[in-house]
Amino acid sequence: MRWDWHDRLHLLGLVVVVAAMAWLLLAGAPGDSGARQASGIERAMERELAYQARAAFLQQIYGPVEELRRQGQAQQALLMLEQLNRNYAGEAHGYILKGLILHEQGVLEEAVASFVQGLRLNGDYVDQRSPLSERARIQNAVDEGLTTLGARARANPDNLSVAAALRNVYYLQSRLAGGCE
């Protein structure tokens, strides 16, 4: 078989590309395990920084709501949340805060529904290690829901709305137990 000038040109191009890729691999990869470890730490730090920045941002945005809640002005806090929703609709932190306030007001079904919406967006709120964790309060809502909504569902087995509310409680229970979506 004979190689004409066209085949030779392709072969040369192929060799150049393979050489370039090999060089990139060697030059781009860390030279030893120490460098690899350093890169890993860097990534972990970046993740941590991003997490801290998010927590600080949420504190800044939702701080006034938290403050009103601490002062016992639950309705004013809910109205402030409504205003924040104009810019941050669908933020998990807003749903969790709303759930906490509604639960404190005794509006259990809506509180549970709000926790569900928040946790579907971000599971950090039931993670014990997370600074955002509201695990204990969500557990309280679940305990109360199992008792009161459970009794209501048993007394009204054909009521679809009560059944839906109880399903929300079960969902929270599963997330607290470590279940995933």
């Binding site: 309705q75 004013q76 809910l78 109205l79 402030m80 409504e82 205003q83 929703n85 104009r86």
Partner: peptide, 18 residues
Amino acid sequence: DLEVMIAEGKIEADDFRV
């Protein structure tokens, strides 16, 4: 109605005290 007016931007949450 307060919620709806706030959501629609007609009033702000801290325009009023409850």
